[in-house]
Design a protein around this nucleic acid. Structure first.
Lengths: 243, 243
DNA sequence: CGCCACAAGATTGTTGAACAATCTGAAGAC
DNA sequence: GTCTTCAGATTGTTCAACAATCTTGTGGCG
């Protein structure tokens, strides 16, 4: 398993305060880019050597990424790049079905100019057939929607959810194109929002998300490879302070 | 500052896997109870001795709590119990104004029986004049609302926001009673939800939250004590790997 | 042949000590 | 009174070690 090779070159001139946060950002990037595939085990020994940090610092980064659900920690077994299954997909869409329509309906209003630019970029990506660029534009579209709420916390949550979406797509790289459908749907949504038809936009979003969830779940269960998780033995919980 | 005394006795027979998570839960509880006041500095040396864990493990717990915004980490200065100001209050209500009405409008529906029981408890607490019990019931009411979305992630976010609300109240312990107003408002809301009038409930929630935010902000700026933050010098960011 | 127990070996969980970098606070200079 | 400087304290990070747990391969046994 070429896990270390997947890390590639590191930014050697980075300036940062907390090394732990820096390590977390490096791993976050590599996972987002798909260079670390879902299910990959992140070994402490090998990673700390590769990144040039101590195991303790690496573990601090793991704690951060675990909090972001980008990584799954199994006690005494290690940490793995999260590999979302059907349950996680349903959870993702439960969140989006609440957040996005609410932002459309009640938010101070998204930045229409920004949305137009994102839609234009998505169309360009569609024209030249670049799926990654289409995916990126799609993500920015939905982030811009939440940005309209003015809440950094909600934006952070949306980003987290979109990061998990990336993991879902990376786990199904064999699947057919998913994004091209949504370029024009986003464009329609934009027009509704620009026209101030918020209730209509919210309703459209909800059905849009319902459809997307169904398609994704169908594709997932259809092309579900063997869940390459390690073993299934439940690890013991050890006791402490039980003198 | 009797920081250590505020910790009180520790559960000495706890059984747990990750010591870091256990430490985080202990600190979370102490902060929620108000035994650790907003602004308190959490010294690594003193805390690690008190809790009987190493500094490394304690720092892992700090990373978790920092991610939950319960604690504020300032590089090279230490970690402090978060002390939310006006900006944080506005952020809290930005989140709640999206999450709660959306849950009422679109969620599969909250557990009406649970809500009734919570309202009953709130009335009991009001009758016997117990502000802490009223606060607890209020929090459970709004959590139950979000629970209706079926999303654990949204519930977690709501819990995080409510934890910050507790910090706000702890920082304004001198303020008059805030919760008694809302006992009956929650009851009205419950009736709307039980009657299936979701749109009405969502609208009511939004104005309800607007009013609550205004009251809280007014009270806050009025009785704002000197922000007991340490000094204001901005800490330097040190560089790395700049060979 | 399949299955269970069992003993290495490897990996994670936690600790303690050490050192560098930075901040804090107080003494002293102007 | 304000600024500089210096010692002391605190945080950031690393290293090495050990305990606890998991993994793997081996051999025995039905």
């Amino acid at each position: 398993m070429p896990m270390n090779a997947a890390l590639g070159d590191l930014p050697t001139t980075a300036t940062h305060a907390h090394t732990g946060a820096w390590v977390a950002s490096v791993l976050r990037s590599r996972i987002a880019e798909g260079r670390l595939v879902p299910g990959t085990k992140l070994s402490e020994q090998s990673l700390s050597a590769t990144l040039g940090v101590s195991r303790n610092t690496l573990r601090e980064a793991f704690t951060v990424l675990d909090g972001e659900l980008i990584v799954t920690r199994i006690p005494n077994r290690g940490v793995f790049v999260a590999s979302p299954g059907p349950d996680e997909i349903r959870e993702i869409y439960n969140v989006r079905r609440i957040l996005e329509p609410a932002a459309a309906l009640w938010g101070p209003g998204p930045d229409i100019a920004e949305l137009r630019s994102v839609v234009a970029e998505a169309r360009g990506a569609l024209a030249r057939g670049s799926v990654p660029d289409m995916a990126a534009a799609n993500q920015r579209f939905h982030e811009a929607l939440i940005l309209g709420t003015g809440s950094t916390g909600l934006l952070e949550m949306m980003s987290r959810v979109l990061a998990q979406m990336r993991l879902v797509f990376h786990a199904m790289s064999n699947a057919p194109d998913f994004h091209s459908h949504y370029v024009e749907l986003n464009a329609e949504l934009l027009e509704l929002l620009a026209a101030g038809q918020r209730a209509e936009a919210a309703e459209r979003l909800r059905s849009y998300l319902d459809v997307a969830e169904s398609e994704l779940l169908a594709q997932f269960t259809g092309a579900a490879p063997a869940p390459a998780r390690a073993s299934n033995r439940t690890p013991r919980i050890h006791s402490r302070r039980d003198c």
